[in-house]
Simulated assay, not measured.
Amino acid sequence: MSAPELILASGSAARREMLQGAGVLFRVEVAPVDEAALKAELGVIDAAALAVELAKAKAVAVSRLQPDAWVLGGDQTLAFDGGLVSKARSLEEAKARLSAMRGRSHALHSGAALARGGEVVWSGVETATMQVRPFSDAFLGAYLQAEGKALLSCVGAYRLEGLGAQLFERIDGDYFTVLGLPLWAVLKQLRHVGALPA
C-alpha cells in the first residue's frame, strides 16, 4: 500500500524549491486563506505565534478539501522595531523598509504545520535573527533596480538566495528558516508520519 500523497498548501516558490531540493515528492495546492482576515481575527499576537497560526490555517484549509493526503502549510513573519512587518506594496515602500533596517537587526519566524483529515497533527516554528549591514544608498538603488518587483513577494523585501545576501553582515539561524520553512523539523515530521522513508 502506497503512502498518502503530500500537498504543499503554499504558493511560495522558495518553499517549493526547498522541498524539491530535498527530494520530497509533493504537489502544490494554494490554500484559500484570507490572511488579512485571519490576522484581524487573531488580534494582537507575537510574530512567531502568528507564523504558526497562518501555517496551520493553510494546512487545515487544504486538508479539509483533500482529507486523505498529508498537507503541509507554511508561513513567515518578520518582527522589526517592536512591530510586525508585512510585504511591501511598492518598490518605494520596499526602499523605505530596507533603509530603516540598515545597520539594525530583525527576526524572521518561519512556521510550518502538517495536517490530515482536516486536523493539525504537528506544527512548529524556527527563528533567524538577521543583522543588516550599513549599506550605501548607491548599493540600495542598484539592488532595487536589479531585483525589481520580485521583492514585493518577500516579507523583508529581500531574497537571501540572490543579491540580497549582500544586505547582511551576520545571520543567526538556519538558512532554510530564512527562506521560509523550518526544513529540518519538517523533514523529521514527514519521516515520523511515514510520508518520507526513515
Rank of each mutant, 00 (worst) to 15 (best):
E126M: 05
G117F: 03
E161Y: 06
V132H: 06
F168G: 08
P134V: 00
W70D: 04
E41I: 08
I45Q: 12
M130F: 01
S153F: 01
F80H: 07
G148N: 04
G164C: 11
T77M: 09
A100G: 11
Q131Y: 09
L78N: 09
R133F: 00
D46W: 04
R97W: 05
A88F: 00
V44L: 14
D81S: 13
Q131L: 06
Q76A: 01
A88Q: 01
D68E: 14
G43T: 14
G162P: 10
D172R: 06
G148R: 09
H106Y: 10
Q131N: 11
S86Y: 02
L114E: 06
D75C: 04
E126R: 13
E92F: 01
G103P: 02
G74V: 02
L140V: 03
R159W: 02
D75A: 06
A138D: 11
E161D: 14
A88S: 11
G156I: 06
G74K: 01
E119N: 14
V120L: 10
E119I: 05
P67F: 01
V121R: 14
G83T: 15
G162A: 13
D46H: 10
V125F: 02
R104V: 06
S110G: 05
L65V: 07
V62S: 07
G43C: 13
G156V: 08
R64T: 07
E92V: 11
A115W: 03
A51D: 05
R104P: 05
R170W: 00
R64V: 06
F139Q: 10
L42G: 14
E93I: 02
L114C: 08
G173D: 04
T129N: 10
A61W: 05
E119H: 10
V132S: 10
G162Y: 03
L42Q: 14
A94S: 04
E119D: 14
A59Q: 09
E92S: 11
L167E: 03
A150R: 15
C154P: 03
L54D: 13
A48W: 02
V121L: 12
G124M: 04
A165E: 14
Q66R: 15
A107T: 15
K149C: 04
R116L: 05
M130W: 01
G82Q: 11
R64W: 00
L84F: 12
I171S: 10
Y143P: 08
G173P: 02
R102I: 01
S110E: 03
Q166D: 15
Q145S: 12
A57S: 15
R97N: 05
S63Y: 01
R170L: 03
A57R: 15
M130I: 15
G124V: 07
L151R: 05
A51S: 12
A142N: 13
E147F: 02
L152T: 06
T127P: 05
G111T: 06
R116M: 06
V85N: 07
K58L: 04
L114Y: 00
T77G: 05
A88N: 03
G164K: 11
Q166Y: 14
G117R: 10
C154Q: 12
L163R: 15
L160R: 13
K95N: 07
L152E: 04
A112T: 02
D81H: 09
V155A: 08
S136P: 03
E169P: 01
G141R: 02
A96Y: 01
A100I: 04
M101S: 02
D172L: 07
P134N: 10
K149V: 12
L167W: 05
